[in-house]
Design a protein around this nucleic acid. Structure first.
Length: 572
RNA sequence: UGGGGCGUCGCCAAGUUGGCAAGGCACAGGAUUUUGGUUCCUGCAUUCGGAGGUUCGAGUCCUCCCGCCUCAGCCA
């Protein structure tokens, strides 16, 4: 029994779940030891060669989140050291995505390419110290000399070239005197190291390529290992957070910074990247889905890209909440998509206006309701938010209900409409099914109800109880809309499994997109604009599409379905 | 008989200087409910990859073993 030291900390706030993690422990320790003048300064360093996905969101939330928590700063920095892969289109998309996620780097938008000159100077420093040399061997030869995982490498003939010659050659590399691949600059470290990264790694390669920012100014471009630590150092980063595969690059990260005079030396920390069930996360695979047209583009609502999630209608707050909940650790993991869905529902339950939409309509005639009568019934907009107000709903003799809400004969526990039974039409009346009509194929074409005028608003105070409550839409007022139901992109939990020989494309879920073109919505939805989120009562959360939605042809995407215990019961 | 990591409930994940296993998701019951939604109760690891050892006491320390991930781009 714990004493009442329960400090306010409401659990409702979406950004409030912030479990402890090993990175915070490291930062706490560093702070305690007075490192970095008690500063915390992180960065999110994407390469502008593709679109951001939920895995990047984890890193973004981590880096910006840490900065917020420790009253520090977080930079947005483009790691644009490879001109042949990088484009402005990507930097713009990335900027938009990070902003949309809700983070602010203020004026600290940086580019690695802005540091090329400084990096060049640092390289000269290393050459002068005899710690870097120009290599004549070609790529294939370098590989030969490097050895293997179990065999040490051997020294290249270029390794003991004198400093003056190295300086001269490196300068001529910069001037563009040599063709691509003719030479590289290498760090002189240890050709027999157990860590392959330390076997004289390449620092610069010759690339006569036009860079998206520096144009044709450079003929040589720095490699990641050489560049990244310098970028961090120049920006006075305190904690350089990256993913696990860079763990064995850390000795090199440290070596470069240790062998330069008077440079700030950040601490690199590695964490496990995010994997999510029923999707793939690698840039290569995502690119293939787009290139082979398995999806409509990078922003297809089924894609795990930020752009895709935005178009799907997933609120940024839900993504942030998710990233906080999954935590940060070093163990490889695969997070259940259900956890993400839960975060999305939690956010939307509080915020989304309720609206009635019949996805699979069947006509109902209320036989004792006057032919030409129409009445407006009030309906609350969100029972979870008393400030959400209410709206008026037109009710008339003919309405639509969901086909699945009627059965000729009731299975066990089915408490929707069956002949003879009384149910409630949400916000309207109690109705009793008196009859139904079938066509020659046996399909039900029309259902007859009788309503009880005394139950206006959907309530009776005579103690009478109804078990079921159905959503409906007045036929003559209904707005025709298209609804796109999205489901997992893949039908296999881990389509990415490296031990599986099957091409991941084979696991694509054929039902990941089901378009319903004949849905009936309450008339208020006529006022809807692009990108608005709703709860379609009893069905799920939906968002008007950002691209295909027009007033003449309203299109809604299903963000996520509501929890459905009835469906669950049936499946058992 | 190369280097670097990781292994706590079905899935994530906390576990201060060893003191006797948080929380979330999922799942299962039940209550409330004009959404079979929400909310609310309740249950859900005598056990921390395994085996030994140190200790009054170990998920936390030591030893050995097992499993998984990762590195041989002039990609990041």
């Amino acid at each position: 029994m714990s004493a009442g030291k329960n400090t306010a900390a409401p659990t409702g706030g979406n950004d409030s779940h912030k479990p402890s993690n090993f990175i915070k422990n490291i930062i706490d320790e560093d702070l305690k030891n007075g490192k970095n003048d008690s500063r915390v300064h992180t960065r999110f360093p994407p390469e502008p060669n593709g679109y951001l996905h939920i895995g990047h969101a984890k890193s973004i939330c981590l880096n910006f989140g840490l900065a917020q928590e420790y009253n520090g700063l977080c930079n947005l920095r483009f790691d644009d050291t490879n001109p042949v892969k990088e484009e402005d289109e990507y930097v713009n998309a990335i900027i938009e995505d990070v902003k949309w996620l809700g983070f602010d780097w203020q004026e600290r938008l940086y580019f690695a390419s802005d540091y090329f000159e400084k990096m060049y100077e640092f390289a000269i420093e290393l050459i002068k110290k005899g710690k870097a040399y120009v290599e004549d061997l070609n790529a294939e030869e370098i590989r030969q000399y490097r050895g293997t995982l179990t065999k040490p490498g051997k020294a290249s003939p270029s390794r003991n070239r004198n400093i003056a010659e190295n300086l001269d050659l490196f300068e001529r590399m910069r001037k563009g005197e040599f063709p691509d691949g003719a030479k590289v600059l290498r760090a002189k470290i240890d050709m027999s190291s157990g860590n392959m990264n330390m076997r004289d790694p390449v620092m610069y390669r010759i690339l006569h390529a036009s860079h998206h920012r520096t144009g044709d100014k450079w003929a040589i471009y720095p490699m990641y290992d050489w560049a990244h630590g310098l970028e961090d150092s120049i920006e006075s980063i305190t904690h350089s957070i990256c993913t696990l595969e860079f763990e064995d690059h850390r000795p090199l990260y440290d070596w470069f910074l240790d062998n330069l005079e008077d440079v700030h030396h950040p601490r690199q920390i590695e964490f496990a990247r995010l994997n999510l069930t029923y999707t793939v996360m690698s840039k290569r695979k995502l690119l293939r889905l787009v290139a082979e047209k398995h999806v409509s583009g990078w922003d297809d609502p089924r894609m795990p890209t930020i752009a895709g999630m935005r178009r799907r209608g997933i609120p940024p707050a839900a993504i942030r909440d998710f990233c906080n909940r999954i935590g940060v650790a070093k163990a490889d993991s695969m997070v259940d998509r259900a956890m993400f869905d839960s975060c999305i529902r939690e956010e939307l339950n509080k915020k989304a206006q309720r609206v009635m939409v019949v996805l699979d309509p069947v006509k109902v005639v209320i036989t004792n309701y006057p032919e030409d009568k129409v009445e407006d019934l009030p309906a609350e907009n969100n029972p979870e938010d008393e400030n959400a107000g209410s709206r008026m709903l037109p009710f008339s003799r003919e309405i639509y209900i969901e086909r699945e809400d009627f059965r000729e004969e009731a299975p066990k526990k089915f408490f929707r409409m069956v002949p003879g039974r009384e149910v409630r039409l949400k916000h309207a009346y109690y109705v009793k099914c008196t009859d139904f009509v079938k066509d020659e194929t046996g399909e039900i074409t029309e259902i007859h109800y009788e309503y009880d005028p005394a139950t206006r608003g959907g309530w009776s105070d005579d103690g009478r109880k109804v078990k079921g409550t159905l959503h409906w839409v007045s036929a003559m007022h209904a707005l025709d809309i298209e609804v796109r139901l999205y489901d997992h992109l893949f039908s296999k939990e881990n389509p990415d499994d490296s031990r599986d020989e099957t091409d991941f494309i084979e696991y694509l879920n054929p039902k990941s997109l089901v378009a319903l073109k004949n849905c009936k919505a309450e008339p208020g939805l006529r006022e809807c604009k692009q990108g608005e989120r709703f709860q379609f009562l009893r069905k799920g959360y939906f968002c008007s599409d950002n691209l295909d939605f027009t007033a003449g042809k309203p299109v809604f995407n299903r963000i996520v379905a509501l929890r459905d215990t009835w469906k669950k019961m049936q499946q058992k």
